[in-house]
Amino acid sequence: MKNKIQTLKLEIRDTKYDEFENSIFFKLLQYLYRLLKIVFSKTFILLLLSATLTSCQSEEKIKLEQYYIGGKEIYEQNCANCHQKDGKGLQNLYPPIAGSDFLKNKDKVIWLIKNGSKDTISVNGKTFSQPMPANIHLQNLDIAEVVTYIYNEWKVDNKITEVSEVEKVLNKN
């Protein structure tokens, strides 16, 4: 019975197809198909793996990026007019933030951003007497973001200034 079925199959098959199936071109197409199948499956796996790894940022890293971006916007709206976008200050009128020794005391920076100052200030051995306006409209989160931006942008540290840290400083007095 098995032989009869095979014989029937062979009789039914088109001889042109047999010739094509045995041709070098057909074998090359089959090889190419298998090769592409392997390459694309490996490429897909690599893409999926890299997408997974890059999207798995820690919550801390995501929060730092959010604070940095929010802080940059606040800085550009409220601080850059005097301290400039590059943080280098304005000649002898307004002190630099970039490279400033004043940044060594984060509590003073937080206090100054919120409350301003009419006093003379010394930055990097240079005296500045222009008053700094208070930013009473800024919320504690805004201040935390702008301090995070300042400290990360000008390489003082690379961490988040938490809202609780701002609250602690501002509630001292």
Results as ranks from 00 to 15, higher is better:
Glu59Arg: 06
Gly125Val: 09
Asn140Val: 05
Met1Arg: 06
Asn140Phe: 08
Val156Met: 10
Asn135Met: 08
Thr43Ala: 14
Ala80Asn: 08
Ile143Lys: 02
Ile69His: 13
Val166Asp: 02
Ile97Arg: 00
Ala80Phe: 02
Lys72Met: 14
Glu167Trp: 04
Ser58Ala: 12
Asn105Ser: 09
Gln84Ala: 10
Ile38Phe: 03
Lys61Pro: 03
Lys16Ala: 15
Trp154Gln: 02
Pro95His: 04
Thr54Pro: 00
Phe44Gln: 08
Lys85Ile: 12
Ile121Glu: 03
Lys9Leu: 06
Tyr31Met: 11
Val169Ser: 01
Thr127Ser: 14
Lys16Leu: 06
Gln66Leu: 15
Gln66Met: 15
Ser41Thr: 11
Trp111Gln: 03
Gln139His: 07
Glu19Cys: 05
Ser58Phe: 13
Phe102Gly: 10
Cys82Pro: 05
Ile110Gln: 01
Pro96Glu: 07
Asn81Trp: 03
Gly71Val: 05
Lys114Trp: 01
Glu11Asp: 08
Tyr149Pro: 03
Thr120Pro: 10
Ser55Phe: 15
Leu28Ser: 08
Val39Gln: 02
Asp119Trp: 00
Val169Tyr: 00
Leu53His: 08
Asn22Met: 08
Leu64Gly: 03
Asn3Gln: 09
Val123Ile: 14
Glu76Gln: 13
Gln57Cys: 10
Lys172Glu: 04
Phe40Met: 09
Ser100Gln: 04
Gly116Thr: 04
Asp119Lys: 15
Leu170Ile: 00
Gln84Phe: 05
Ile45Lys: 13
Thr127Met: 12
Arg34Tyr: 14
Val146Gln: 02
Val169Leu: 01
Thr43Ile: 06
Glu165Phe: 00
Arg13Cys: 07
Thr7Cys: 00
Ala144His: 03
Ile12Pro: 00
Ile12Trp: 03
Asp101Cys: 09
His137Met: 04
Ser50Gln: 05
Thr52Val: 12
Lys114Ser: 06
Gln6Glu: 06
Glu73Asn: 12
Phe25His: 09
Tyr75Ser: 08
Lys104Pro: 04
Ile62Trp: 13
Glu59Asp: 13
Phe26Met: 10
Leu29Asn: 05
Lys126Phe: 02
Lys72Phe: 09
Met132Glu: 06
Asp86Cys: 14
Thr120Arg: 12
Asn171Arg: 00
Lys106Gly: 11
Glu153Thr: 14
Thr148Gly: 07
Lys172Arg: 03
Lys118Ala: 13
Cys56Trp: 13
Gln6Thr: 04
Tyr17Asp: 14
Lys85Val: 11
Ser129Asn: 08
Leu93Glu: 06
Asn78Thr: 06
Ile12Asp: 02
